[in-house]
Nucleic acid binder design. Structure first.
Length: 501
RNA sequence: GGGCCGCUAGCUCAACUGGCAGAGCAGAUGACUCUUAAUCAUCAGGUUCGAGGUUCGAUUCCUCGGCGGCUCACCA
């Protein structure tokens, strides 16, 4: 009883009272004729065309978010997913008994109401209710009406309350939905086919990240949650689907931050007989298509910046970008040790376990990434950090890879896919050899090394022959952050990962 | 995992240098036939995140722990 406090207890008493009157506080269904938004639009239309003064009865339903009694009349605010409308109740119209029953209704309850639309003296379109039905009794008090729910932790843990009481939350997730939907449209229009590949994988590859491990009982087999979509989508290219994509969740067992959630959504796109140049074109076209579709223009505001997504985006060679910003030409440092020494000279604190690829990555994120506000492609990465990309046509130490940056965030990653099965095998082995220790089992008690079991099944697939292919990955969450102008990934994921209390 | 900051009524926030833990909203009761952060009157509502410690006395100071925010590391 201490936990089920005062208000909840009072509401339970009301609930019992309602049941005592033979009323079911949780009926099975209710047929509404309009959403609140449709109702408001309907009345505006009726007003603007005087000849059709037909004002018919309609029925609405939603959650009560405010109650204002004024003696023998009352005003309730009713919210549904489309918006809000005011309901007007009067003792005259409802009769004493039904009017009195209104006192059993609380803020937070769901009701259905029938009546005709009108404008109040102060000009608000309202429903003059001649009949109403309780559809669900609420037993918990809602957050305060004026400030809403401010406590960030509660907003994430009880997202439904955030959605109910903070008006600005719902549009973010509508935007997210539209963005994903526009991505599908774009790709479908270009005759890509959408596929679904395993989330549970015996060998989770395609990226460098710690995995989540799980176990299948019946098979008595270890499985991993996927960390990328890549290796299965390439199998489909080999299988003869020339244009495939998948939008799906991937899982990375890494740190959590304002830009990282353990599970996040990626779209990966593969197209046979293209290379990374074609993929650049695809990213530009796709993002400006999405922008036009979702917000009607290619300019977006992100923080203080105005970003224009219209193609063509700036293209910079990675080597030049790094050299320009910190004076280091990574081509002068062919191994991790020499590069590390050079970086230490700049006052950087360097993790001694980092291999050359990771050191270059650190140069990017320290010196280059933050300044890439306008859409920019960084081109041609060192081979060390890209085991799945094909070498440059004229440089053995670089691969045909680009990353797309917007608003200082990495949004896209793409390469001309490596399709030489023997070289791929060799690169996997090299990668495993330089694997930093932190990807190895953390505790001595852990079983087999987690890092880089080689995906033999994938290598076998490659041996059957994969056409030259361009591949592209786009982080949907980052894209939503950009479009929603949010600096934290938790604001654009409905239920971000939090510790269990 | 490290650093900094935060946690007080259902919600939003106060409480000076350590001295009786308070307000608004939400709730209950009453008044009110056009309100909309309705208004007015009355009432109720607390393990001050948890456990220790210092003190005559702790929301306040100290230690440990929990959860969160920002940030660094890892990563995308």
């Amino acid at each position: 009883m201490a936990r089920l406090k005062h208000i909840a207890q009072q509401r339970q008493e009301k609930l019992a009272k309602i049941r005592g009157q033979g009323i079911n506080p949780y009926p099975h269904s209710y047929h509404r004729s309009h959403t609140t938004q449709e109702a408001v639009a309907l009345y505006e239309q009726i007003e603007s065309s005087p000849q059709t003064t037909q004002n018919t009865e309609l029925s609405l339903a939603g959650r009560i978010t405010a109650i204002r009694f004024m003696g023998k009349i009352a005003f309730f605010d009713i919210h549904d997913s489309s918006g809000k409308i005011q309901a007007f109740f009067s003792c005259n119209l409802l009769g004493n008994e039904r009017y009195e029953f209104l006192h059993e209704i609380d803020i937070g309850d769901i009701i259905g109401a029938k009546g005709k639309l009108f404008r109040t003296k102060t000009g608000e379109i309202s429903l003059e209710v001649n009949d109403f039905t309780l559809l669900a009794k609420s037993l918990q008090p809602l957050p305060e009406k004026w400030h809403g729910l401010v406590d960030v932790e509660k907003r994430y843990r009880q997202r439904y309350l955030d959605l109910i009481s903070n008006e600005e939350t719902k549009p973010i997730f509508k935007l997210r939905s539209q963005l994903i939907s526009a991505s599908r449209q774009f790709l479908n229009e270009r005759e890509f086919i959408e596929v679904e590949t395993p989330v549970l994988q015996p060998v989770a590859g395609g990226a460098l990240a710690r995995r989540f491990k799980t176990h299948h009982q019946a098979l008595d087999q270890e499985l991993y949650l996927r960390i990328a979509l890549e290796l299965y989508l390439k199998r489909l290219i080999i299988g003869g689907f020339d244009k495939v994509y998948e939008i799906g969740r991937v899982f990375r067992n890494e740190g959590i931050s304002t830009r990282h959630n353990p599970e996040f959504t990626m779209v990966e796109i593969y197209e046979a007989y293209t290379d990374y140049n074609d993929m650049m074109k695809l990213v530009e076209d796709m993002l400006s298509y999405i922008a036009k579709k979702v917000i009607g223009k290619t300019e977006i505001k992100f923080g203080e910046e105005l970003i224009n997504l219209a193609p063509p985006w700036q293209r910079i060679y990675l080597r030049e970008a790094i050299k320009e910003r910190c004076g280091i030409d990574f081509e002068d440092y062919p191994d991790a040790d020499s590069l590390r020494i050079r970086m230490k000279q700049l006052g950087l604190q360097i993790d001694p376990n980092k291999d050359r690829g990771r050191l270059v990555d650190e140069l990017i994120s320290t010196f280059v990434e933050p300044s890439l506000t306008q859409p920019t492609f960084l081109l041609d990465y060192p081979i060390d950090m890209s085991p799945l990309a094909k070498k440059k046509r004229d440089n053995e130490r670089l691969v045909e890879r680009f990353e797309g940056f917007i608003g200082g965030m990495e949004i896209a990653n793409a390469f001309t896919e490596l399709n030489d099965p023997l070289e791929q095998r060799e690169r996997f082995h090299q990668q495993r050899a330089t694997q930093p220790t932190e990807l190895m089992p953390a505790k001595p008690g852990d079983e087999e090394p987690e890092a880089e079991a080689i995906d033999e099944d994938f290598l076998q697939a490659l041996e059957y022959g994969m056409p030259p292919t361009g591949g592209l990955g786009i982080g949907i969450d980052r894209l939503v952050m950009l479009f929603a102008d949010k600096q934290s990934i938790r604001e654009i994921i409905l239920f971000p990962q939090l510790k269990v209390k």
